[in-house]
Design a protein around this nucleic acid. Structure first.
Lengths: 193, 193, 193, 193
DNA sequence: CATGAATGAGGGTTCATTCAT
DNA sequence: AATGAATGAACCCTCATTCAT
């Protein structure tokens, strides 16, 4: 039962990611999600309160995958500069692996975060804090300049990664998102030093 | 007559910017725009073909103000590093001056650019090119590293500015966007050197 | 002044005939009529109370041209059978000469006569009476059977002519409407004998 | 389920016939049809693509009833002249039985056939062909004159029947449409001989 | 007389959500 | 639990008509 429930929930969420990534939230109908999920329209409402709550769950899961599956790997003892490079590689790898997920994060999340009641904004903050911690460590070890506010730095780093990811999505390019990792890392590390 | 026309057009556009910035395009009705503009619903359609074309015009005007009023000032002979600092200041000033305009640019434009037929994307490219030119000049003068691709650099710079602007918007803060100009400029210039 | 008035009235009516014949009354806008007439939208309302009254006038004039210009020629002393042939020729000639007028009469008039307040139905009755008179004369002279009700006969004759005209219109054919005159006359005269 | 579907479809169609016959297609709103059918506005669109497709279905069903239920009876071995009389009786009986259906056929169909994309025109042609066949047979058996083109004759016959039907409708008369059958048959048969 | 910008009621259509089965 | 037919509010847009100039 509990398993059934989560299986169906996942099926619906998977369907929603695809539809929303392709058409945008407002151009996606509940029926379309239901059809792709292979369930009836009404069934959606057994698992989600309404259309908006599907979107919230989509974001939640996307952020989860992004943060937990990825960033936690950073909790090791490497050099700050090296860790920056790792974050860059990881961020772009995750975004690059799943185009639909990337669209959701770069396009829909940013859009919704402003108009819908702010849920997952806190998850973003988690991410920022991880980045800020790296900067702080780097400043303590003398590797990075001390004048920069760590949280601001975190946001700047994120801005760069986000822009690269968005650019990749908007370009429709099936090009190599990973090929730029080194260049970008250097830029960021130089900026921090 | 011709004046009347452009006056009315502007009134409608101004109303649209406010409504769309507050509610998002899909949650804004033509009636709301009309009401705020002080005209009847039908009047809207004397000046715009349909709802979407209002959005397009909103973007167009926003980009125009942004690019023409601003970036052209850069065509002077200053040092590249100084120009970077100027761009940062200018970008954040323009965004900071008009919160609604900023929302449109950071939130709606990004959203629409992906799902609607890509019009004003070319305007963005213009902006990138201005930034890329500065980088190129800096590389020639030896001020900046030569390994970085100028266009990529332009995008990284934009990403940083964009993120800071978005952060400011999402924070709802009526805080000082300008206070961070120096920190950010330093970061970018260091990254380019 | 009076001349100006009737000139403008005619211009509007001419425009209305063309537009309505091409698109149908309900798909024709007052603006389209005005544009074709070369006047402003508002001007229409100086000459006609509303859109419907334009249609009424269109019908009125169409019937006028049809009856007066045509049928009155029949008031001569020919043989009834010969007169039938003349009516057939005349009816089809008038319809065939002006396709737009024909569409109005065959398609729009018939449609409107049922739903709008019945104006010009009386003009149609005039026409029927002319036809009925011919039949009556024929019966008196012994040329036609006496069992047939003259008014019914008139309508049967009209039905035949109307169908041929409609068929010609619906066929879009720029074919020869006149080529069938003899065949049709024979059929009608035989039917009456 | 399948039964439900066709039941509902029929209910909507019945409602549409009544409303359209009374007001005309363009003066009938989807809401009115829905109200008379006893369903919500949106329900209409579960069964019909749009308003126009309702009209098409109305025509289709009207023609069907007219042709299949009726004309096929003619495929027997009677005398041509007798068959003509049968067609006249049948045509007027069908029209006379259902005033709304008659209005649709005589008024709306003729109107739409000219302005909408011509669908059911082919059904009319079927009907003409049945009539033409009778004439052809009559010509072969020597009962009818050979000079007349059978298809033209068919149209003339139809024109007569159509006019009588239209006249009956426009007269609003709840009078006897059937009383004229003999007179009309005679006229037609005489015309063909 | 003439204009044409402005009006706003009204229509067709969509779609999130419900509920009887 | 699951279905999907039904609902009806809400939206975009059109166009006959008016009226200030």
């Amino acid at each position: 039962m509990a398993i059934d429930k989560s299986v169906k929930t996942k099926k619906i969420l998977d369907a929603a990611v695809i539809e929303i990534a392709h058409r945008g939230y407002y151009n996606t109908t509940v029926s379309q999600i239901a059809r792709r999920a292979g369930v009836a329209d009404g069934t959606i409402y057994l698992y989600y309160k309404n259309k908006e709550s599907i979107l919230v769950s989509v974001f939640e899961r996307a952020m989860d995958r992004f943060i937990s599956e990825g960033v936690l790997k950073l909790k090791n003892g490497k050099e700050p500069a090296e860790q920056i490079a790792e974050v860059v590689a990881l961020h772009l790898k995750l975004v690059g692996e799943d185009h639909d997920l990337a669209v959701i994060l770069q396009v829909e999340l940013r859009h919704s975060i402003h108009f819908l009641d702010m849920f997952s904004r806190s998850r973003l903050r988690e991410y920022f804090e991880v980045l800020a911690d790296i900067v702080t460590k780097g400043q303590k070890s003398g590797a990075f300049r001390k004048e920069l506010d760590p949280l601001l730095s975190a946001k700047l780093i994120f801005g760069v990664l986000d822009q690269v990811a968005t650019d990749w999505i908007l370009a429709d390019s099936n090009s190599k998102l990973s090929s730029r990792v080194d260049e970008i890392s250097e830029f960021l590390i130089a900026g921090l030093k």
